[in-house]
Structure formats: structure tokens, C-alpha cells
């Protein structure tokens, strides 16, 4: 029983903490978007010297947009999962209480009237557990999907460094852009990875 309560507690905490981790990812995605705008302006000023950098800025921008979209989708999925967790918890509590009622009412005239309602609740609880498992799987899929832009951002950062080296006096500015994309990508990777491992630790 104690283990069951602990498991439920950890489910609530994990699902709620996903939202926190994702809000950090959202901040990072917005930073990447800003870095893209910054890089575009520098590349424009650098003209011919930063020709190779210009398409990269479009990639960075696209990456930020895609990440923001994915984070929004994951947030929706996480809040649906939270609702299911609360519902499942309530159904489990009721199921447990109905069993106690059965034991306490063995001498009551109308004890059998609870049987169909308890059976219906068991069914709904099973459905809820199934829904919970599905939602967790979907969330895990979405979390691995968001790892792609995180990895891509690191590749873009590496390419940005190479292109920056051709940009003469703009080298330092473009290297700063590359650094900020790299840092943002790393943070994103770490946060999402943390979500995935805490979900994997959850006893489902």
C-alpha cells in the first residue's frame, strides 16, 4: 500500500516536473530564435565575407520555430496526462473504498446494490490505466522527437564556427552566435533527457 502511494506520488511529481523542464526548453528555443535574428544581421553586414553563414541563419531560425511548436505540443500532452493521472488516482481511491464498503456491509440488507456500480468502476479504472499508458508512450515519443532539433542545433553550431572563420573582422561576432546556439542546444538536450529518464524511472 505504501509503495503504491509512493508510486502515485512520483507520477504526479514527474508529470508536473515535465512542464517545468519544458518551460526552460521554451526559453532556450526563444534564445535560439534571437540568435538567428542576430546572426542574420551580422551576416548581412559582413556581406560577401559571410556568404556561407547566411543560409545557416535560416536553418537556425527554422530550428527554433520547430522546437517551439514541439514544446507546445508536448505541453498539451503533458497537461492531458496530468488530468488522466488525477482521474486515475480518484478512481483508484474509489475502487479501494468500495472494497472496504463491501467488507463493512456484509450484514446490510442492500449490500448487493453496490456490486454493479463497483464492477462499472473497475471497468472505467482499467480504461483509465490503458489511457494513461498510451499517453505516457505518446509523450515519450514526442520527447524523443524534440531531441532531433537539439542534435541538429549542435551540428549547425559546428558549421557556424567553420563559416565564422571565413568572416574576417566579423569572426568574433559570428563565433558568439555559434556559441549561443551550441549552449542552447546543450541545455535543451539535458532538460529533455532529464524528462525522459524521470519518466522511464516511473513505475508504470
Amino acid at each position: 500500500m505504501k509503495a503504491h502511494i509512493e508510486r502515485k506520488k512520483s507520477q504526479f511529481v514527474v508529470v508536473a516536473s515535465i512542464a517545468t523542464e519544458l518551460s526552460d526548453v521554451m526559453v532556450v528555443a526563444k534564445e535560439i530564435s534571437l540568435a538567428a535574428a542576430n546572426a542574420k544581421a551580422i551576416a548581412y553586414r559582413a556581406g560577401e565575407k559571410a556568404r556561407g553563414f547566411q543560409p545557416i541563419t535560416d536553418f537556425i531560425n527554422e530550428l527554433a520555430r520547430e522546437t517551439i511548436e514541439l514544446v507546445n505540443q508536448i505541453n498539451e500532452q503533458a497537461s492531458a496526462l496530468y488530468e488522466t493521472t488525477v482521474k486515475e488516482y480518484r478512481y483508484e481511491q474509489a475502487n479501494k473504498q468500495f472494497k472496504t464498503v463491501s467488507a463493512l456491509s456484509c450484514e446490510a440488507v442492500y449490500k448487493d446494490s453496490l456490486v454493479p456500480i463497483a464492477a462499472q468502476l473497475e471497468e472505467e479504472l482499467e480504461e483509465m490505466r490503458y489511457q494513461f499508458k498510451n499517453q505516457v508512450d505518446q509523450l515519450l515519443d514526442q520527447l524523443s522527437e524534440i531531441m532531433h532539433p537539439a542534435r541538429a542545433a549542435r551540428v549547425i553550431a559546428a558549421n557556424s564556427r567553420i563559416e565564422a572563420s571565413q568572416a574576417g573582422e566579423f569572426l568574433q561576432s559570428l563565433l558568439t552566435v555559434a556559441e549561443s546556439v551550441d549552449k542552447a542546444a546543450e541545455l535543451m538536450y539535458t532538460n529533455v533527457q532529464r524528462c525522459r529518464s524521470s519518466m522511464a524511472m516511473m513505475e508504470l
Partner: peptide, 16 residues
Amino acid sequence: LFAPMLAAALHYAPVE
């Protein structure tokens, strides 16, 4: 109190 209360109520009335 839910379980003891419902169990006691079932002495007088069916759930429905």
C-alpha cells in the same frame, strides 16, 4: 468516513 457511512446507509436503502 465514506466507507463506514455508505456501509451503514446500505442497511436502509439500495445505492440507486
